[in-house]
Nucleic acid binder design. Structure first.
Length: 896
RNA sequence: GGGAGUUUAGCUCAGCUGGUUCAGAGCAUCUGCCUUACAAGCAGAGGGUCACUGGUUCGAACCCAGUAACUCCCACCA
């Protein structure tokens, strides 16, 4: 049968993914085995796969497949997040395209449209994950707004409310004028923005009387005595000003104490107040106080009992209270008012200025501080234990550097605004009564019972549910519990079996949004951590270091990559460039390397597959077989260790080298039958054949978590014998760590060195690799080179290997390990060049010996260094002396 | 403004408790090979003042102090 020249991934991926599904290999139900659980960070339900997901889910799949192959009951729970703001924004936009305005439809109608949208686009991303090979238990797929999930969220709200940790109040919140909702502090992203600082003159009331103004000690004289100048970046808010504030210690303005001023354009009179909050050397030292539109000003306003004038609508256009520019957007108004002020002679000057502005994480709209009635969750009590889990190592953050960040946030956390003025999400279970009070209960019926405790005459129609929904993170914080129904049924078999989960793989950006809140909820509801390890991946950046994003257009389409390089290739590519905890500089070339690796395995397979056994042959490969068995076990231990430390890149690289270098480049070359002219097809002995096939099978297992499709494809080839229906690589058990003969491995290292030297000799003397050469060995190290004869002959193309006790005159000589080798060539030896080479080596060795001896002769070294270090130095000394002697002998031989 | 992190070969990164012939790996590069698994390959080679300056030590890429550049997080100066 003929084998395809190259491996074609698409076909195998399709075939094996459905095979796995058909045979329920991803399915997990509680049993007597040890569980290994991962809950997916639920992607946005309407999202599409991006490179961050690729990285994240590749890692999760590698971990879950490995656990499965170690005999654990591996359960990877998939699902999606309703992502209230982002999704609602998308639905609103979709409706707008259809000519429907959200304002004109009811909540119920809107939700109907939203659900339609979700059914249509939701789950695209999960389908995409399948292409990557993600072995999630799809029967467990959850959506954060599934009925049971929502019910859990409501339960949690009621629970926290009962504890008194949820309260309602008017606060200055971060208002997203595009999403038309409040957002939490964490959802505000600050960015440096180029702005202008406007210097605006306010007329001082009754100032004309001041005249000569006795005893003023101002640093500079105001241009006109009847004005006070303030600096602001937000001139469009002057109509909401409630006061002008100056520092009481500011001698420039003592004359203003107790005065009032007029707001330009609208001529409203406001007081001048004194507060040390004002920085004297910033701007003009005069601050306009706008309590409705600035957090600090709000606090100042509270302190000084100022009027609050809110001049903005929910969409950040100016309202009637502004008196002028009504209906204009705040940014348009800013430009226009500058002109108006200029015309009125109230604009002193403008200056360029950069400052930090908050933007909404979801809509990217500039955040507007806004006073409103919101629901808050008290964080102090929740944060305290959640911090402890991490500081005491119960929950491990990988890499550890994030512990500090986590601690800082937890120690400084403020109460969390959990209400959102949206429809898409879990509606807050608070019910208002005609008397202005409210009750919190799981259902309207239960709320009524509560209400009737207040007044027995209330009926169900007296109850009005709060319009707001809960922050998405309030529900995703329950994810590891709610997917196992552990909120509603805290003692069910599933939650008891799977929870706490093992590993969480996510991005550091959502450490506070999500990870922290899961730990809080875990403690609050179950008094345990939700997971043991949190593996924080880096941000996927392009090779220029820019974050990959749709808007920059620098992100490749993951599905295109899969089509081009195969899922296995892309998986390998992602992991090759992703050191734990660091950002990943992604370059397609890594995928190319990945697919190259996959192809290499395919070709190795082709080689072995092409062998024919000749039972009459006896094996000459016992040494090679023993060596590879040892190397394999050694590499396996290394890989195990790398995984323990979550060094996935390293684990992959160790696997990569095991396959490419040890297996393909060395082992297969050692044992493969050499090509003989005239022989139609080379044959192999039965012993070598079966050993090699067994090695190959073990290699497939070791590779499977990284390259699941290729390994499954090869696993079922007849090379490995008949397979039962359920005998699949995906559920094969990883080889357990076996014996490692370190002596053998060390000796083979010397033999490999020898072979490289032989090849090098050929190269430098411009001999064809096909010319077999005789090799003489003068061994002093105790290595039995005759036991490596077959290997040396085959890989070095040596015609004859002889053991000698004296230098072979007129030969090329070289050292490998601490032994000397000679190759007799029919070429004149260049005595001068050889002398130079040997002299150089002699000098190096002498220098090296000197430094080793210096250490050994140093009393303090001998006194302080650990015994094994000293022993090592002694060995270095002995080796160097042995080699030096060889070199010196060779030199005198040349001279003689 | 506060805090954390990073800086090692052209690129991406290892280097664990200071001590192994310790300055490494993969990719890229160069040279030679279309050798019966693989040119997506094979064989060989070159490439680094471990950011900089000092210090501690018998010994420093590693520990300490300072400097510089970059990154991230947190923070209400209009």
């Amino acid at each position: 049968m003929s084998i395809a020249k190259t491996y074609s991934p698409a076909e195998a991926e399709e075939k094996w993914y459905s095979y796995w599904l058909q045979h329920n290999f991803f399915r997990s139900v509680p049993d007597e085995r040890e569980p290994y659980t991962i809950v997916i960070p639920p992607p946005n339900v309407t999202g599409v796969l991006h490179m961050g997901h690729m990285l994240n889910n590749t890692i999760q799949d590698v971990l879950i497949r490995r656990a499965r192959m170690k005999g654990k009951n591996a359960c990877w729970v998939p699902g999606t997040d309703h992502a209230s703001i982002a999704t609602e924004a998308k639905v609103v936009a979709m409706l707008k395209e259809r000519g429907i305005n959200k304002k004109d439809i009811s909540r119920e109608e809107f939700l109907k449209y939203a659900l339609e949208w979700k059914d249509k686009y939701g789950g695209i991303i999960l389908e995409q994950l399948k292409k990557l090979g993600a072995s999630c238990d799809w029967e467990r797929t959850k959506f954060t707004m599934d009925d049971d999930m929502s019910e859990s969220v409501i339960d949690y709200f009621v629970h926290l409310h009962k504890k008194g940790w949820i309260y309602r109040g008017v606060r200055m919140v971060n208002w997203d004028p595009q999403g038309k909702t409040a957002v939490s502090d964490e959802e505000v992203i600050r960015k440096e923005v180029n702005q202008k600082l406007y210097y605006i003159n306010y007329e001082v009331a009754g100032d004309e009387e001041r005249g000569a103004d006795e005893g003023r000690t101002t640093h500079h004289t105001p241009r006109t005595q009847s004005h006070i100048t303030i600096a602001t970046t937000r001139p469009e808010t002057i109509m909401a000003d409630a006061a002008i504030c100056i520092n009481p210690n500011d001698e420039r303005y003592t004359h203003l104490h107790g005065k009032t001023v007029f707001i330009p354009l609208i001529d409203r009179e406001i007081p001048v107040i004194l507060d040390e909050y004002v920085t004297m050397d910033f701007g003009t030292g005069c601050l306009k106080v706008t309590p409705a539109h600035d957090l600090n000003d709000y606090e100042l306003g509270q302190k000084h009992k100022l009027q609050i004038i809110d001049i903005l609508n929910d969409d950040a256009t100016l309202n009637d209270k502004a008196q002028i520019l009504v209906g204009e957007d705040r940014f348009v108004a800013r430009k226009k008012i500058a002109v108006l002020l200029e015309d009125a002679g109230a604009l002193e000057k403008t200056e360029d200025y950069t400052s930090q502005i908050g933007f909404s994480e979801r809509t990217n709209a500039a955040i507007e501080p806004k006073l409103s009635m919101q629901w808050f969750c008290k964080m102090a009590e929740l944060a305290k234990p959640a911090l402890e889990y991490v500081t005491n190592g119960d929950v491990k953050l990988i890499p550890e550097k994030f512990i500090n960040t986590y601690r800082h946030w937890m120690e400084n956390v403020r109460d969390w605004n959990i209400s959102r003025q949206l429809w898409w999400g879990q509606q807050i279970p608070a019910y208002y009564l005609p008397n202005g009070e409210f009750v919190v209960a799981k259902t309207k019926e239960e709320a009524l019972l509560e209400a009737q405790k207040i007044d027995a005459s209330f009926t169900i129609s007296d109850l009005t549910q709060d319009e707001d929904v809960l922050d998405t993170w309030f529900s995703s914080g329950l994810w590891p519990i709610s997917v196992f129904d552990g909120v509603r049924n805290p003692d069910n078999a599933e939650i008891n079996y799977y929870y706490p989960t093992n590993d969480l793989v996510t991005a550091p950006e959502i450490l506070f949004f999500w990870v922290a809140r899961m730990i809080m909820a875990g403690h609050e509801l179950r008094e345990t951590k939700p997971f043991t390890n949190v593996y924080l991946t880096g941000i996927v950046r392009d090779k220029l270091g820019r974050k990959m994003s749709k808007s920059l257009g620098n992100s490749p389409d993951p599905l295109d990559l899969i089509a081009q390089y195969g899922a296995d290739g892309v998986r390998v590519g992602m992991l090759l460039c992703s050191p734990a905890g660091n950002d990943l500089m992604f370059d397609e070339k890594y995928c190319k390397q990945g697919s190259g690796f996959v192809n290499k395995i395919w070709n190795a397979f082709k080689l072995v597959k092409g062998w024919e056994v000749d039972d009459s042959l006896t094996s000459k490969n016992e040494t090679a077989i023993a060596w590879f068995a040892s190397r394999f076990n050694q590499a396996l231990a290394q890989i195990e260790d790398d995984f323990k430390q979550y060094r996935l890149s390293e684990a992959l690289m160790a696997t990569y080298k095991l396959v490419w270098d040890d297996f393909c480049a060395w082992y297969l070359e050692m044992v493969k039958p050499v090509y003989q002219q005239g022989v139609e097809r080379q044959k192999i002995d039965a012993r070598t054949y079966s050993a090699t096939v067994a090695f190959f099978e073990d290699i497939l297992k070791a590779l499977h978590p990284f390259t699941p499709f290729l390994t499954e494809e090869l696993w079922h080839d007849e090379l490995f014998g008949e397979r039962a229906e359920l005998d699949c690589c995906i559920v094969a058990q990883l080889p357990v760590n076996g014996q490692v003969n370190t002596q053998l491995i060390a000796e083979v290292e010397v033999v490999k060195q020898l072979i490289e030297k032989i090849r090098n000799t050929r190269d430098t003397n411009q001999l064809s690799p096909r010319d077999a050469l005789p090799l003489a060995v003068k061994a002093g190290s105790g290595i039995r080179y005759d036991s490596y004869e077959a290997i040396i002959k085959q890989l070095g193309n040596i015609s004859e290997l002889s053991l000698v006790t004296d230098a072979v005159a007129g030969s090329n000589s070289f050292i490998a390990g601490t032994d000397e080798f000679f190759i007799k060539l029919n070429i004149e030896i260049d005595v001068a060049a050889e002398t130079e080479r040997l002299t150089k080596e002699k000098e190096y060795l002498e220098g090296f010996l000197k430094s080793v001896n210096a250490k050994l002769n140093n009393e303090r070294f001998m006194a302080n260094a650990k015994p094994e270090i000293v022993e090592n130095e002694l060995k270095k000394k002995a080796d160097a002396e042995a080699r030096l002697k060889i070199v010196e002998d060779s030199l005198s031989g040349l001279a003689g």
